[in-house]
Design a protein around this nucleic acid. Structure first.
Lengths: 132, 132, 132, 132
DNA sequence: GTGGTCTAGACCACC
DNA sequence: GTGGTCTAGACCACA
């Protein structure tokens, strides 16, 4: 799966990496049980430090997206990603609230907002027929 | 309008302040042209640093939410908040994308997601009969 | 609170630090809400790297023992430590099992084992009248 | 005796193997003088590396649990496991201390802790009528 | 001043 | 080869 890191962006590198891996899982570019590159090879692929990759991996592990084996490297959690629970929903609500508040101020109606959401859902669910 | 700052939260204080003012505008607790406390009084009301309030105000000014006059103090932009443009929509899309990607991984369907969005829209649109 | 780090020990430094802080909380050398030294001062006090201290602090934060504020440093969780839940009990059971299996092999009866447990509980509960 | 290795676990494989053999001895699934599979066959049974089994065996030998003869293979120490001495007790105390410190912090009283210990002792002492 | 992020380079445990 | 630990030193965001 192709990962693009913007070294100039404000968003921390490890966060960009995390989000792209999560997006990869969401759109099934990364299948359950599939291997991820080792910290070292991911780091050299992306031209970043291995500790930065490690930080992203550790957090993904913590959140249940991946398993890290001492020897066999890193795999997408073969048992699936932990499903939404109350704590997650509460955090999602907290993240969403300021985005919607600003949208309201700027005249974005619920209908338009839902269209944006729909577009992202569709992008993620879009079935890839064949890809590298 | 009552503003609550959580000094323990991960979210920077100036961001909390910004978001609550934006939420205040969204739910019309703060009306166009309405005055906001000066940097000094806001800081002392909340028990936080001048610089912190100033940072929040400067960003709100930058984003068109407020005007800062030397004499007349700080007011919600009387001409209204700049409406959504392409840049804003692009940023909103960028903020929304990782939230939805994780939601997909955790089994939150578009329908449930839309319900959360709807709940927040309703909370913000709820008409306040009187408020301080 | 005095903390001793053995640089030669097999146990990682960050683990030693974590355990001594937890022990400090257990025996009320460290009170809820009490401040801990900043990562930098703790590191220089102990003669170790700030990243090592940071790793210990991050894990303690993760496990609910401490709060980390961007500016005001580190404090013992003023709301108290998260109480035992099923997951914690399961892990404790898993940690205990091999210790007891070996004890059985080496002829340590349950009675003697309980005496060791009791001694540690008493050491931790021993009320400190005054100390630095 | 059935041995289960969890390749996903954080615990190193050689440690899992060691602990399960020790547990086998404790619950008399493995009797004094009983043979253990050779390094080679144990490795192929479990689908793990020779070196890994060897490391576990060497440590078990070092700690007096097993004897390794060139010809007669590997047997549980027929003279019995070396009984607890001061050094062992000191190490056990060191292992137990952080577990109990955390238990105290999390509100696990000595009484509950003793119940967990009792349950493990009982599991280990449970007499097996027949086993493979 | 605080913690957060990132880099660079080293050694060790595991397999 | 893998990840885990530790060190050293840098720059930034926050208050």
């Amino acid at each position: 799966m192709y990962i693009h890191i913007d070294l100039e962006a404000e968003e921390p590198i490890y966060t960009q990496l995390k989000n792209q891996i999560i997006a990869g899982v969401a759109r099934k570019d990364l299948l359950l049980g599939e291997s991820l590159p080792s910290v070292r090879s991911m780091a050299s692929d992306l031209g970043i430090n291995l500790h930065t990759v490690n930080k992203a991996y550790q957090q993904l592990k913590q959140e249940g997206f991946i398993l890290i084996h001492r020897q066999r490297g890193v795999v997408i959690n073969p048992e699936g990603i932990p499903q939404a629970n109350d704590e997650y929903r509460k955090n999602l609500q907290k993240s969403l609230h300021p985005l919607i508040a600003e949208a309201v101020c700027r005249g974005v109606k619920e209908e338009e907002f839902n269209k944006m959401v729909k577009a992202i859902y569709e992008e993620l669910n879009h079935i890839k027929e064949d890809h590298e």
